[in-house]
């Protein structure tokens, strides 16, 4: 192979190589071991410290594009919350999160959701709350004002769980599943910051991997206490839940595909650099 001409390779060949190699582990998983990192462990541990009956918020603030990353995160959190007997107020500050959240709740609480016995006492779905950060702020200040009914039109006054959920002070944890804005920074600024800070309302986040570097200052400052970093974070969390509660694992194959994709990208970088060095050493210019 002529290494010098490799930089001129049509990018579509790169796409085909990536597609083929990513498909293989999806069809035949390699089952690579998953090492649990600090951030996912912190999310799990924080949730474990809560007691049965504590009220937590799970907010589905993402769109269809990031379902592969955000959905398993939300599902895992709801599962852990149910196992611990936490009372869940689920909602969405993204319009697209409304239908997606309902789908995840059905996955965890059964396909009959909301026609389940614990609906209204242990779990409630408020659906989409408009207004972005203003909506979040109102939710924290006076939850009933943010939305008068749940997702299915039942007035707040008729929902037992909402009798105990009037403002952010009633919450023990906020789980923000997000892929953008409004997201964790808006929760910190408009809810947590206005209601006693991280000590009064701890925040855990499930996020797309690309946004996590931007969250780290908040993690270092304690404003975020646990993070699920993209698909790999969801996988780590899933393995923790599987160990503790027998949670069914479903991310091994996607994580293997991710591993393969990362290795392929590194190989591309190496190939590109070999070509670059050889081209330079022969006095040529890269196209």
């Amino acid at each position: 192979m002529d290494w010098k001409t490799i930089t001129q390779i049509d990018r579509r060949y790169l796409y085909i190589i990536l597609f083929i190699f990513v498909s293989i582990p999806l069809l035949s998983p390699l089952n690579l071991p998953i090492l649990v990192g600090e951030h996912a462990q912190a999310m799990y541990d924080t949730t474990e410290t809560l007691s049965a009956g504590d009220i937590v918020v799970c907010s589905f603030d993402f769109g269809p594009a990031t379902i592969p990353e955000n959905r398993p995160q939300a599902k895992g959190f709801l599962f852990q919350a149910r196992e611990l007997g936490l009372r869940v107020v689920a909602t969405a500050f993204w319009a697209s999160g409304g239908p997606l959240g309902e789908d995840i709740l059905r996955d965890v609480y059964g396909s009959d959701f909301p026609a389940i016995p614990e609906y209204g006492t242990d779990v409630v779905y408020l659906g989409y709350i408009p207004g972005n950060e203003v909506g979040m702020q109102t939710f924290g200040d006076d939850t009933w004002t943010a939305k008068g009914t749940d997702h299915y039109g039942t007035p707040m006054a008729d929902i037992p769980l909402m009798q105990d959920t009037r403002a952010a002070e009633d919450l023990s944890l906020w789980c923000e599943i997000t892929s953008g804005t409004p997201g964790e920074q808006q929760v910190i600024q408009f809810v947590q910051g206005r209601h006693g800070g991280p000590a009064a309302l701890p925040l855990v986040v499930g996020s797309t991997a690309v946004s996590v570097p931007g969250m780290m200052p908040f993690y270092a400052a304690g404003q975020i206490v646990g993070i699920l970093n993209g698909l790999s974070g969801a996988g780590e969390y899933e393995s923790l839940l599987a160990g503790a509660y027998g949670y069914p694992t479903e991310l091994l194959a996607p994580l293997d595909a991710q591993s393969v994709a990362h290795v392929i990208v590194i190989l591309f970088i190496i190939a590109g650099n070999i070509s670059y060095v050889l081209t330079r050493s022969s006095g040529g210019k890269e196209k």
Binding site: L32, N229, L255, D256, Q258
Partner: peptide, 10 residues
């Protein structure tokens, strides 16, 4: 890239 995927730990 390597550290954020299971292959890194492997």
């Amino acid at each position: 890239l390597l550290g954020r995927a299971p292959v890194g730990g492997a």
